[in-house]
Computed example of a mutant assay.
Amino acid sequence: MTQADAARSAGVSLATWRRWEEDPAAVSAKTRVACEGALKGMSELERRSLKSAGAFVEAWVDSHRLTPRQAYAIAVELGTWIDTDIGEWLQDPSEPLHDVAPFDRFDLRVMMLVGDSRAWAEAVRQRCRVLYDEVEAGTLPFDRPGPLIDEVLIGAALDGARTWLQDMPELFERIPRRDSVDDDDDEVASVIGDDDWSVVSDIFDDECCWDEWEVPLLRGHPLLPAVLAERHPFRWFDVVEPTGAGYLQRLTGMVVDD
């Protein structure tokens, strides 16, 4: 639902709706009731899309790592897991957890160790809430000390975020589009654009604190058994010293040059 749709639902002008969003006290009590009623009739995703778009623009407008639309799309994916996928499964765990997003992105060997643990699913849900708030504020897991699960979840969110941006453009209409700008000298993108998801993945790989952040998401990765042997999924929430660059090479017995 767009702002214009919400305003029509409330029976007010678009300008009045925006004024109410910025400061509810700036409109009449009757208008506040109408706008609040329209908001209550929306889904959680629709409410979030209306209220927080501006925050993502402010937080990511000058970023070289994500565009505001990409950051917002990642947050939408996280929010969907929180409210719909994990949230509904916790209320009615009638299907296997490995069929529920985001866990359906994980290699099954991860989920064999987890089973249908509701406590583990709730712990993931809580980390998704933290990540949502941080992405909205312009922070990624690589920017501060944190557990392995945070980087795994951000990685798991990328494909879904790309799909949201492609298939639901109306969710992003309040956020200015950004196209990539190529450097004339070396023909590489010097400004990331909304469609440059492969660049995002490369940037995340360069900045990650946990070298194995993508391994649980790559089906059949040969190093996953070694990763799981060193750190069971129940321990992915521990805030400890991250493995750092070269960890996967060390697992294979390779020598890492300084």
Score class of each variant (00 low, 15 high):
136 E>N: 07
36 E>M: 07
84 T>Y: 12
55 A>P: 03
25 A>D: 10
60 W>A: 02
33 V>N: 09
101 A>W: 13
89 W>T: 08
133 D>N: 11
33 V>M: 10
139 T>Y: 15
75 A>W: 00
21 E>D: 03
90 L>S: 01
118 R>W: 08
85 D>H: 15
24 P>D: 04
34 A>C: 11
65 R>Y: 04
96 P>A: 15
69 R>K: 05
28 S>V: 07
130 V>H: 12
48 R>G: 01
77 E>C: 05
44 E>R: 12
88 E>D: 14
74 I>Q: 07
31 T>M: 05
112 M>H: 12
31 T>V: 15
129 R>Q: 14
26 A>S: 15
112 M>I: 01
122 E>F: 05
19 R>K: 15
28 S>Q: 02
19 R>D: 03
54 G>T: 10
102 P>W: 06
71 A>T: 00
74 I>C: 07
19 R>A: 06
61 V>C: 08
89 W>I: 06
23 D>A: 09
110 V>G: 03
72 Y>K: 07
81 W>M: 02
37 G>N: 13
100 V>F: 07
53 A>V: 02
29 A>D: 10
111 M>D: 10
101 A>Q: 11
104 D>K: 11
102 P>E: 03
120 W>P: 01
111 M>A: 06
88 E>S: 11
52 S>E: 08
96 P>G: 11
61 V>Y: 09
111 M>T: 06
37 G>T: 09
17 W>C: 03
135 V>G: 02
50 L>S: 05
68 P>D: 01
43 S>M: 07
115 G>N: 09
35 C>V: 07
105 R>F: 04
124 V>L: 04
44 E>D: 11
113 L>E: 15
137 A>N: 13
102 P>F: 05
105 R>I: 05
112 M>K: 12
67 T>I: 01
63 S>N: 02
40 K>Y: 05
74 I>L: 15
94 S>T: 12
113 L>H: 07
59 A>N: 07
73 A>S: 06
124 V>I: 12
126 Q>K: 13
104 D>G: 04
88 E>G: 01
42 M>Q: 08
91 Q>L: 10
102 P>R: 01
119 A>S: 12
79 G>K: 01
96 P>F: 11
110 V>H: 03
118 R>T: 15
101 A>N: 04
100 V>G: 04
68 P>R: 00
63 S>I: 02
33 V>I: 13
55 A>T: 11
62 D>A: 11
119 A>T: 12
45 L>A: 14
98 H>D: 12
91 Q>E: 14
95 E>Q: 13
30 K>F: 09
99 D>Q: 08
51 K>V: 13
132 Y>P: 00
60 W>L: 03
23 D>E: 13
131 L>A: 03
97 L>S: 10
81 W>R: 02
88 E>K: 11
139 T>A: 08
134 E>D: 15
110 V>P: 01
109 R>F: 04
110 V>D: 06
